[in-house]
Amino acid sequence: MTSTAAVTATYASTIARELAHRCSVAEVFVTSLGAVGADEFLVGAQLPRMHAYYGDHAGPLGARYDPLLVMEAARQAAIALTHEFYGVPVESAFIVRTFNGTGSETAAWTVGDLPADLVMKVTVPRKHRRGDRLHGLDMVLDISRGEHHMLTVDGSFSWMTSAQWSALRTGFRDGLGLGDHIAESAPGPRAAAVEVGRESPRNVVIGPPMSDGAGTRAAVVADLSHPSLFDHRLDHVPGSLLIEAARQTALATVGVATRLVCVASTFDAFVELDLPAECRAEITDSGLGAKVVRCEIHQADAVAARIDLEFAEPDAAAATGAAG
């Protein structure tokens, strides 16, 4: 077993974009991968001080790192580790079942004078097998910046060959009465950026929100030309867009000044690009200094994803507090 002292995170360059399933080198945030022991790893990542998508937040939140940016770095790390240390071919397709993040209230979230160098301590508490074949992992990534903890991310995912993916997607679309061809159309109307805490209208991923006594609803808007959310061609709406749609719908409910501190997401079905989808948000807990919003993504009369978000009130923590 390699000693922990012999493995360090480095930041000289990013890992190969193929390992992170990114097309643009600029969208790769992981910088090093190292094995510490059996199913234990140390990963380096660097967050840019400015990013056209993850850094686009109105008001004081624009001076903080977005927790969804850190979760994206964790997603890249998890996939890259499977390729580097578990022999998973880079052309494999991945399915995410759960993806969660819990933030700490530390100074790590403040954007400083230099890019943020992160250290991820990664463990694999469970492996998924079919017979002798490994086809999935559960991972926990404990993420810090310097001496300050930022976020603990955990998730469960599996992978398959391109042929298996094609058969799975064909069967799913056939069940919805859709063909192999994805009908493309222009994105629908979007909410005003100010309603969802954004400055750029291009980063809005929901339609105008509609609120009633039971909660808030908004159409999911998928812009296939978006360079971050659709860094490369996809045949479905990615989970990252669904989580952002949930956040924006929730912000339209609780107010854009609140800070995201926790994410808990479960994905039950694909969300198709050529069928209407809707996010429904409801406040389920409104305790002292925090609010929990439960979101569901609906498509074709079914719930495709469930995303719970916890927000801290603007005055619930000091300016160096966590997430968002």
Results as ranks from 00 to 15, higher is better:
308 D>M: 07
321 G>C: 11
277 A>F: 02
126 R>A: 03
129 R>G: 00
18 E>H: 07
204 V>E: 00
254 V>Q: 10
63 A>G: 13
143 I>M: 09
181 H>P: 00
157 F>G: 03
281 A>G: 00
76 Q>P: 05
112 G>V: 00
90 V>W: 06
30 V>G: 05
57 H>M: 12
290 A>V: 11
160 M>G: 09
29 F>Y: 15
120 M>L: 14
297 I>P: 07
144 S>P: 08
311 F>I: 00
155 G>V: 02
270 F>T: 00
6 A>Y: 07
201 P>M: 05
301 D>R: 15
58 A>Y: 09
289 G>C: 08
86 Y>M: 01
151 L>A: 02
66 D>C: 15
152 T>A: 09
252 A>K: 06
149 H>W: 11
185 S>R: 14
97 R>Y: 14
161 T>W: 10
103 G>Q: 01
131 G>R: 13
157 F>D: 00
138 D>K: 14
95 I>C: 02
319 A>K: 12
113 D>M: 11
7 V>S: 08
251 L>R: 05
203 N>A: 07
216 T>E: 04
113 D>K: 15
76 Q>Y: 10
11 Y>C: 02
206 I>H: 03
97 R>W: 12
223 D>F: 06
266 T>I: 06
154 D>M: 13
192 A>S: 13
16 A>P: 15
155 G>A: 02
199 E>R: 15
106 T>I: 02
70 V>C: 01
104 S>N: 10
30 V>W: 04
28 V>S: 08
265 S>P: 03
218 A>Q: 07
316 A>K: 04
168 L>Y: 15
296 E>F: 08
128 H>D: 00
52 A>V: 12
44 G>N: 06
167 A>N: 10
58 A>F: 06
282 E>Q: 14
86 Y>R: 12
15 I>S: 02
285 D>C: 03
26 A>L: 11
295 C>P: 08
48 P>G: 06
311 F>H: 01
73 A>S: 13
117 D>A: 11
119 V>G: 07
278 E>Q: 14
160 M>C: 05
191 A>M: 04
104 S>Q: 15
